[in-house]
Design a protein around this nucleic acid. Structure first.
Lengths: 223, 223
DNA sequence: ACACTCCTCAAGTAATGTCTTGAATATAGC
DNA sequence: GCTATATTCAAGACATTACTTGAGGAGTGT
């Protein structure tokens, strides 16, 4: 025991798992799946790839043990194998944010200039939510809201956001949140609100980070 | 903003970082570097590769931002870019251990049968270390001990272990530790001790995990 | 300047990964 | 059994990766 060949084989296994995350499209898949399970059709639209190619990438993730599947009729739903995988994804994102030279430029190119877009911290939001002097809006798709959301939040998916602003109580600050720091939904929502003269900020990061911080969560119909 | 091309480029950046870890030899490098900085020559011996190839892999890690360098004379020392990278490595190891089908077999092939090798938990060891009824031995190379070690541990590198057992006080249990769960040094040390009729166990995991758990650490000459 | 050590770079080869296209399989409802 | 829908599989073009060998650059000590 302790020989070169066995050691190489062991560490190759770690490499295989990392390699599964080593592709932009698969990283996008994991990011979406961190919000809850999805079927191939939805995922392919989400990452802008053909269904066949999406299926291929999902197979790579499944072979590495990062995702598992569940069949429901003709549909096959994919989900992350465990919360550990979510942790791994968050760790990868943190390291990239801290050490990848061009990440800031790439994020700015995708998200737009965030400098004028104020954020509110998780702890502060949790306090103000308890005090009741803020409205929290989940702007992710409805299925993601149903899977789990910030306790007390209401769901207005970004697609229908502009049309539903009038339902939000007036005179109270709005906080929008979505999938995470690299998700544009909340940014877009805040921009729309500001344009209409409302006080609005986005939550730092998104729902998975809220869960990770052990803050209050609700699921399904309950809010 | 929010267009496909920009999103793909952003997530490709996450993929690049993951890809840097996506090779067994580079995973080994990161595992060793988690113990402290090393120069290329040492690293090439550690992973059993030519210096040129080791240098190539280190360049890949450096380009991804995972490691940084420091020159000292003709030597170039590599180290992990930050504690975040160490976290990422631990997360990758956890996920692989939890979800890779063959990991147990591969680990057994490298480490040998561990079933008869008792481990002691971190918390229990910390308590017994405070009580003083246990001797803790760091069996990693001396340079790793110098960089940082469990407070109160003594250094007996595995190479010189058998020759130095006699220095250990008799009649008291010995706990050996090394680099982590996939390091053979502590296992080997415990086997040698048992063979000589001494009470001995290995610490669960290794030094990086001890640090991560915020347990007492010492560095350099101090013990 | 010189030799020496340590490390990186460049070129080449074999193997692997990505994505496309078109066909094949599995399930549900009729 | 037949059809529609959802997903996977197979084959191929093209780009990328791992590792080897040999040359080259950077720093030290005489």
């Amino acid at each position: 025991m302790g020989d070169r060949q066995a050691k190489d084989a062991l560490f190759d296994a770690f490499g295989e798992v990392a390699k599964a995350l080593g592709n932009g499209r698969r990283a996008e898949l994991v990011d979406v799946l961190a919000q809850g399970e999805r079927h191939v059709d939805e995922l392919s639209a989400e990452i802008g790839q053909t269904v066949a190619n999406t299926s291929f990438h999902l197979r790579v993730l499944a072979n590495a043990g990062l995702v598992t599947t569940r069949r429901d009729g003709t549909r096959i739903y994919y989900r992350l194998a465990s919360a550990r995988v979510s942790e791994l994804w968050l760790a990868l994102r943190d390291v990239t944010a801290a050490h990848h030279e061009q990440l800031d430029e790439l994020a700015a190119a995708y998200l737009g200039d965030r400098d004028r877009l104020e954020q509110i911290g998780r702890i502060e939001l949790a306090e103000r939510l308890a005090a009741g002097d803020v409205v929290v809006v989940d702007v992710r798709p409805a299925t993601e809201f149903a899977t789990g959301h910030i306790s007390g939040a209401r769901s207005i998916p970004i697609d229908e956001f502009a049309a539903n602003i009038k339902d939000l109580p007036a005179g109270i600050e709005v906080v929008a949140y979505c999938r995470g720091p690299y998700c544009v939904f909340a940014d877009d929502a805040v921009r729309v609100l500001r344009r209409r003269g409302r006080r609005a900020r986005r939550l730092e990061d998104g729902f998975p980070e809220w869960v990770r911080a052990d803050l209050p969560v609700a699921a399904a119909g309950a809010s």
